[in-house]
């Protein structure tokens, strides 16, 4: 049933927005995301004697999928805590835990005007996703600046310690290893020999983390809204946690988000070395190249975790959405990446 036909939602939204006589003029379910359900609503209501037109976003937990079990309150709390820190994010409005309102818990936030990049084959002769040099330069500037701000934020004073401080030393690496090992266990893929090899290697080779930071966990082109050549909002905070910032660095430089040769730019934006240098310069943090190798294997395990969760959701018939089923077909690709990087880590 379309939201506009759902008799529950209009009166609920009117109350929440402090208005009356609310009508949903337009709605569309975003298809870009593969995890949380995102609904865009254009609403009109009366407030203080005036008709107000507004666009809002509802982010609802899906019945099953890539990152289950879902808890949309976490993303809401992170976004709310980061307001005013300089990180480009949408304004959050409220969190609704009651499934009676819209079938599953969700939160509401502002609709940020702009576009999202699709990581698809470009028509550009050099396969550049963003061929305009000026646009790519300004997006790159914002991309690095936002990442630096996320890593630099004082998560304790922002109240983000609820995410779980992994503690000093090897805590960050080990906590993530156990987290993804558990995810794969729940999906029923933990007894794959490659997974066992990887988990044991990650446990035995965990590096020390100098300083625990806020880690976005899904930071890449395709996960931000841009307009007029600038980034307007960083999206998809579902995998955000406290940990080692090298995790995000490896994620950014990952092969899945690179432009094809001849450029091979990270996140379709800039050469890898330039990204690393500019990040180091702006953050004041020295990137440890050896650590990147470790976190690459962890990232591969994470990919196996996400894809195997999708495969499990599809196999268990948790959702009529076929996207997890399509996503599950990537499992062999994730295994190949994990095997390749693990082979580099294992000493003969």
């Amino acid at each position: 049933m379309a939201i506009v036909d759902d008799p529950r939602l209009a009166p609920y939204l009117a109350k929440k927005l402090g208005g009356t006589d609310l009508s949903i003029r337009k709605e569309w379910q975003n298809t870009e995301g593969w995890s949380m359900e995102t609904f865009s609503l254009a609403v009109e209501y009366t407030k203080d004697g005036e008709r107000v037109a507004q666009e809002i976003i509802l982010r609802r937990e899906p019945p099953g999928g890539l990152l289950e079990p879902y808890d949309s309150s976490t993303e809401y709390r992170i976004l709310s805590a980061l307001q005013g820190t300089g990180v480009d994010i949408p304004k959050t409005f409220w969190y609704e835990p009651d499934p009676a309102v819209f079938d599953r818990p969700f939160y509401a936030m502002e609709k940020v005007d702009g576009e999202v990049h699709f990581l698809t084959q470009s028509d550009d002769p050099n396969f550049r996703l963003i061929p305009d040099d000026e646009e790519r330069a300004s997006l790159t500037e914002d991309f690095i600046a936002n990442l630096v701000r996320i890593h630099a934020c004082d998560w304790r004073s922002l109240g983000l310690d609820f995410l779980g401080d992994p503690g000093p030393g090897k805590g960050a690496a080990l906590k993530q290893t156990e987290y993804w090992s558990d995810v794969i266990e729940r999906a029923g893929f933990r007894k794959k020999p490659l997974v066992t090899l990887a988990v044991n290697w990650l446990r035995n080779n965990a590096p020390e983390t100098d300083s625990v930071r806020l880690v976005h966990g899904d930071y890449r082109t395709g996960n931000f809204i841009y307009k007029d050549k600038r980034i307007r909002a960083i999206l998809d905070w579902e995998m955000t946690h406290l940990g080692d910032p090298h995790e995000d660095i490896v994620y950014v430089t990952g092969s899945l988000w690179r432009s094809p040769p001849p450029t091979n730019w990270v996140c379709h934006l800039l050469p890898e070395e330039e990204f690393l240098e500019r990040y180091e310069e702006q953050s004041g943090m020295k990137i440890d190249r050896e650590k990147l190798e470790y976190f690459q294997v962890l990232l591969d395990l994470k990919a196996v975790g996400i894809i195997s969760t999708a495969a499990n959701a599809f196999a268990r018939n948790k959702t009529p959405d076929l996207k997890p089923g399509a996503f599950a077909t990537l499992l062999d690709l994730a295994y190949a990446g994990l095997a390749q990087h693990l082979n580099g880590g294992l000493k003969a």
């Binding site: 490659l194 090899l197 190949a336 095997a339 082979n343 294992l346 000493k347 003969a348």
Partner: peptide
């Protein structure tokens, strides 16, 4: 670790196939 690397190499045949 050498044994693990050998095992990974054996597994690699099927990964390559896939």
């Amino acid at each position: 670790e050498k044994v693990e690397k050998t095992v990974l190499g054996q597994l690699g045949q099927n990964i390559l196939r896939d």
